[in-house]
């Protein structure tokens, strides 16, 4: 007998949502608290520190990274829109571009980190670098996680489109929610660490 998991596609009457969407939103709520704790620590350290030397950070590189991440958010949502329009080829194109942007983000971050290490700047150097590496490092792990999920949905996971197109479209929507959250965190990290 073929047992189907309920509310994968159809909406639950009490929540008005399919289950995975509610699940991802609750996960994102917990992520807000995770990054919230670090932002709270940042504020405390920032106002208490006698010296806060963020002039060693590379603002042009971080600005490019911001643009890259915003672009990836747009391509991510366009991949979902393409599936809504039943256009699998366009979906593959936009999802590929999203992954490309994520990889470019990581490459730029790699150059940023290596230049710090080359100059002898480590998390242990001072309070600013400690919170800088902690927050950007955690964010980078989230980007890495997003790449893994998006890559799965781009190549191996795409076969679900043949059998359950609506469920697959929902998967892209919730992967998109996570990806936009990663973008959202960077939108606050960028001015907080690089500019203020």
């Amino acid at each position: 007998m073929d047992i189907k998991i309920p509310f994968n596609e159809e909406l639950r009457p009490d929540t008005g949502l399919y289950n995975a969407k509610l699940g991802v939103w609750l996960f994102l709520a917990s992520e807000v608290m995770l990054f919230g704790a670090l932002f709270s620590a940042y504020v405390l350290l920032r106002v208490a520190a006698p010296i806060w030397d963020n002039s060693i950070l590379n603002i042009p590189m971080a600005t490019i990274n911001t643009v890259v991440l915003i672009t990836s958010s747009v391509t991510m949502i366009m991949s979902w829109v393409s599936l809504k329009m039943k256009n699998l080829e366009k979906y593959k194109l936009y999802m590929g571009l999203t992954i490309l942007c994520s990889v470019v983000f990581l490459i730029i971050k790699y150059f940023e980190y290596s230049s710090k290490f080359e100059h002898g700047y480590y998390p242990s150097t001072n309070t600013f670098l400690a919170i800088y590496f902690t927050m950007t490092g955690l964010h980078m792990l989230h980007v890495l996680g997003g790449i893994v999920v998006n890559f799965y949905l781009w190549i191996p996971g795409v076969k679900m489109w043949e059998t359950e197109p609506e469920r697959f479209t929902n998967r892209i929507e919730i992967a998109g929610l996570y990806w936009h959250f990663v973008d959202l965190v960077w939108i606050f990290l960028f001015p907080a660490l690089y500019l203020l």
Binding site: S73, V74, M76, I77, G176, H180, D183, L184, I187, F188, F190, P191, A192, L195, L196
Partner: peptide, 16 residues
């Protein structure tokens, strides 16, 4: 800085 970041955050959360 926070006002501008919040405006950007609102756009992403509300529309994307």
């Amino acid at each position: 800085g926070l006002i501008i970041a919040s405006a950007k955050g609102y756009l992403v959360a509300a529309h994307f």
